[in-house]
């Protein structure tokens, strides 16, 4: 706040009671419930603490321990695969669906939007319950597919994706895609609708086909939306916790033991609150770097 005091501002006036009350409430609330916990997390990261016995300061030991922790490195890898594969695929699918919906007549657009939006409003835990069953080999989708294919004379043996190390992460990825497809599509749909139709008409008179129109009009104009969605998707995807915690419990083996789940377990199963806090700081740094670098790339590459 010191910077403001130095700046040449209009004479200081006694703030009204409204300003005083609201500004102070904001300041106190965010200090107490954001700034303080954040600083605390930073501090706890340098401690050994199980919440019960005495606190032992350990310096950077928690951070050093991460480098030797094979489960942590695996969690980092699993999360990187999950986020790295999910975000680009999901955003592409959302964009394509949004573009298709934007060009539909009102009625079918409404019907489809309703259907694709239902998963968005469905809480994770209900989705978990539904997919836990839908993924079942005998009673769910694999059984259905096997049934349908055998009726066509093809022998298939689809099984529960969550049962195998190779496909478990893919299963959760599919579920996540299902849950957020409608959300992203809606955001893109709104963005595309804001593009003036005259641009497309002009392009068409110049003889540009639909694909070229998309590439040269739609795409450049929705880039800012793509950037915003991309940043929020990375932040959201890295923090997905519920399906890993309830459905796969990190397994089979450590195949779905993602960063967020491992962090939770270190704190609440192993009572290593210091170690978990240090991990939280690493997660914060990763997300910060991801966000800032995306903004930087957007600024240098997309200037036109």
């Amino acid at each position: 706040m010191a910077t403001v005091a130095r700046a040449p501002r209009p004479r200081w006036r006694r703030p009204s009671s409204f300003v005083l009350v609201v500004a102070l409430a904001l300041l106190i609330y965010y200090m107490l419930f954001f700034t303080a916990p954040f600083i605390a997390a930073l501090v706890i990261g340098f401690l050994n603490w199980d919440l019960l016995s005495t606190v032992v300061p350990v310096g950077f030991d928690n951070y050093v321990a991460m480098a030797d922790d094979r489960t942590f490195k695996n969690a980092l890898k699993v999360s990187a695969i999950f986020v790295g594969a999910y975000v680009p695929i999901a955003l592409s699918a959302q964009l394509i669906l949004g573009a298709i919906l934007a060009n539909m007549r009102t009625l079918p657009q409404k019907v489809y939007l309703t259907l694709f939006f239902l998963p968005v409003v469905t809480p994770w835990l209900i989705a978990v319950l539904m997919f836990g069953y839908l993924f079942n080999t005998q009673a769910g989708l694999p059984g259905m597919l096997n049934d349908i294919f055998s009726a066509l004379g093809i022998d298939t043996s689809f099984v529960n994706p969550l049962g195998s190390k190779d496909t478990a992460l893919l299963g959760i990825m599919g579920m996540t895609g299902w849950k957020f497809l409608g959300f992203g599509a809606l955001i893109f749909l709104v963005g595309i609708n804001e593009i003036p139709l005259t641009l497309y008409e002009a392009a068409r008179i110049d003889g540009a086909g639909a694909v070229r129109q998309f590439r040269h009009i739609t795409w450049p104009l929705i880039r800012p939306i793509m950037l915003a969605l991309s940043i929020t998707s990375f932040i959201g995807a890295l923090q997905i916790f519920d399906p890993f915690f309830v459905m796969t419990r990190g397994g089979p083996g450590d195949a779905t033991n993602v960063f967020s789940l491992y962090l939770y377990r270190q704190a609440f199963d192993q009572f290593r609150f210091g170690y978990a806090s240090a991990m939280a700081m690493v997660m914060f740094l990763i997300l910060l770097i991801l966000s800032v670098s995306q903004l930087a790339i957007a600024r240098t590459r997309w200037e036109y």
Binding site: Y30, A36, P37, A40, A41, S277
Partner: peptide, 24 residues
């Protein structure tokens, strides 16, 4: 500064403040 401060909390992921919040 107050506005920037409030906005900056949007940048903090839930997991970064999760454990101390639980303790508090």
């Amino acid at each position: 500064p107050l506005f920037i401060f409030v906005l900056s909390t949007l940048m903090v992921p839930f997991f970064a403040i999760f454990i101390p919040s639980f303790v508090v």
